[in-house]
Design a protein around this nucleic acid. Structure first.
Lengths: 219, 219
DNA sequence: TTTTTTTTTAACAATTCTGTTAAATGTAAG
DNA sequence: CTTACATTTAACAGAATTGTTAAAAAAAAA
């Protein structure tokens, strides 16, 4: 299974061909989407030829689903890991959580998921069960909304989770638009975002303290 | 240019063929993306045949760019209209603004823009100039970030704009994932979201009041 | 009615892309 | 060395898709 080609002769850094393909495929699928992705581009990127793609993964479809699963499996835990590590202070927890979330979001993975689910909703349906617990965080949010039509003084800790996601995700997604249109290079953009997690954390901590929430409310 | 076909015989509601095509095209492009969209599907949806698409818009590319422009033109003003109507109370303004933004975001338009810009960044480059003012709101935000690495007490009014966008956009985008995976129908989802704008508004108003901002800070 | 414009029909060329195959070559391991 | 597996090469079939065209039909305008 190991590979010693012209691409990478160093024993330490050499990876299996399958892995090389998956890395290339993910990159291409994330930027072009399933429909825009070309098997040729993937094989080029992986440093192999097109026939070998079909040797490993019979079809484009199968290869795509493998990628989709991997991305989903990386994302879903972010919906439920909140509940662990009960001893930590909530301020510290918040910061760590935001940092993890942003690390994930820095790739195009989130957009990739959204795009492909719109294209083919069945992709999710079959993979939902095991993540129901995490998803319920968002259902709770919607249920409250429905039942009580919360007003001012009622915006409660259940929303904190959604608010955190919002504050982390949107600026990163939008950066695509703004960096392209304002000609900010990816490297430059990365610099700009260095301090962002702290800023979000601090803003939320302020907000939570102001609202007099107890530790048990948000953990 | 007017059309009286089997699709719609009522004089009042009849629209031009070109419009019918554009409506259909937008729907298809927004859900499938440029690469996934099929001319056949668009013509079916518009209630005409495929040859007529090319009669009106020579190529798929040209048709797509027309749609892209329209969506972008609907989105960009949302980045700059904030500055108008100086007499209104800022609470009222905030509410109206959020409501407008959410109305736009309820379609897949935002996701459409992100997806297509990733696919082909040049789409934006040529259309950026006239919207520079609006975009600068976000640049300001990034510049501050870069220069000062703001901490706790420094999260200031410049971020408010980004925060509003975040809170409005993300839950709507994510609803795609959650509604699909939890089998909530679009209709049902719409109900759930009824009270959301007010909730966001009130949360922000609370936050702003707490932080002792003056009207001039956020307008 | 006559003319012009819009729309349909049907067929087709050109291209692109996926998936397959067969034969050759290279590589690892017994 | 020999065998088994991994990889390349090159070619091809089949399908899907875009864009074109010519001729007929329908609708609108004159």
């Amino acid at each position: 299974m190991l590979k010693l080609t012209n691409i990478d002769m160093n024993a330490e850094t050499s990876i299996s061909t399958e892995e090389a393909i998956l890395v290339a495929a993910r990159k291409v699928f994330e930027s072009k989407g399933f429909d825009g992705a070309r098997m040729q581009e993937i094989s080029d990127r992986a440093g192999i030829n097109r026939a070998l793609l079909h040797y490993y993964f019979r079809t484009k479809e199968k290869m795509f689903e493998r990628i989709f699963d991997e991305v989903l499996e990386r994302f879903m835990p972010l919906l439920s890991t909140w509940d662990q590590d009960m001893e930590e202070s909530w301020e510290g927890k918040l910061k760590r959580f935001i940092s993890t979330l942003i690390t994930f979001l820095k790739t195009n993975s989130m957009l990739f998921l959204l795009r492909e689910i719109i294209r083919k909703p069945e992709l999710l349906a079959s993979r939902t069960k095991k993540h129901r617990k995490g998803l319920n965080k968002f259902v709770l949010y919607f249920d409250r909304l429905k039942q009580e039509r919360l007003i001012r003084s009622d915006v409660d800790s259940r929303y904190i989770y959604v608010i955190i996601h919002s504050l982390c995700s949107f600026p990163l997604m939008n950066a695509i638009v703004f960096s392209y249109s304002l000609q900010i290079s990816p490297k430059e953009y990365d610099e700009l975002m260095t301090g962002y997690p702290e800023i979000i954390s601090d803003l939320l901590i302020q907000l939570l303290k102001y609202r007099g929430l107890r530790k048990s409310d948000i953990m």
